[in-house]
Design a protein around this nucleic acid. Structure first.
Ligand code: SF4
Ligand code: SF4
Lengths: 136, 136
DNA sequence: ACCTTTAGGACCAATTTGATCCCCTTTATA
DNA sequence: TATAAAGGGGATCAAATTGGTCCTAAAGGT
């Protein structure tokens, strides 16, 4: 239950690589894909989502590629995950106001709590933390 | 992300109904399905899982049906969810010891934390709590 | 025997996931 | 102003998962 999909895993690996580059350095999608060991065309889609959400800046043409749009310390794991997997939502009923049955039941509050906790954890982790190498 | 499937939702609704019955009262799957508004044959499968895991006791033939195998206060929401959805596992790498890539990365610890938190929340909720009606 | 009720497996349609391909647009520069 | 080098976006597709049905067998009561 609650498994991250490949897309989410790839997204994280990809943006971590980008965060490990010298600030301002432009990376090609082919380069990122190779480094993160992810199918290139698939990763391209993922980075399109990133760009649309303003996590990364993309530029086309010769010399184009991707750069982080903000410092890695200002991008949270939650943003990255939600960019490709959609909102953290343990139960559908957390989106629509009420249940399709007779009003929200007691389980509702539990899912709400799960959602809150997970969001909190993921909000507390920034990409620069993840990008730091094992050593130190 | 992290959505409970129909199966999980049905499982919870079904076992809550069972918990709301007078202790020892045997319920037919048809009765539970009608009350919980769940496809009967599908719910039957779910209760089979419950039975195999010892959450409910089943008996066949005339007068047969399902009863909780333990008091509702001794069945946690986690048990119910895991019975049908499998273990709480935010990332595959939490199951196999190490990653298929170069050893567990820093993200690993985050997923571990998510898992621990969610398990903790779900372990803290018992079915009798959920079964109590809105009033009081 | 016969009816009732769960057990278990086979089976199936719809959806989601994981991925590839192709053509378009943008941009630098020869 | 070609032309090559990127990314953008849509169509498409196979595999896996989800959601659900059906049928037969086994067990238990009368
Ligand atoms: S039954 Fe409860 S948990 Fe399920 S959808 Fe309705 S309010 Fe949400
Ligand atoms: S890259 Fe990190 S989070 Fe992903 S599977 Fe490997 S250890 Fe787990």
């Amino acid at each position: 239950m609650m498994e991250l999909t490949r897309k989410g895993e790839y997204a994280i690996r990809g943006i971590i690589y980008l965060a490990q580059q010298p600030p301002g350095r432009v990376s090609l999608i082919s380069e990122i894909a190779a480094a993160a060991e992810v199918p290139q065309t698939f990763l391209a889609k993922i980075f399109q989502s990133f760009a649309k959400l303003g996590l990364v800046t993309s530029s086309r043409g010769t010399g184009g590629g991707f750069v982080l749009a903000r410092p890695a310390s200002a991008i949270t794991l939650r943003e990255v995950v939600e960019a490709v997997e959609g909102p953290i939502l343990p139960n559908r009923c957390l989106l629509g106001s009420a249940c399709d049955r007779g009003g929200p039941c007691r389980v509702h509050a539990v899912w709400k709590q799960v959602q809150t906790e997970v969001v909190h954890i993921l909000d507390g982790v920034t990409i620069d933390t993840l990008a730091r190498n094992q050593d130190s």
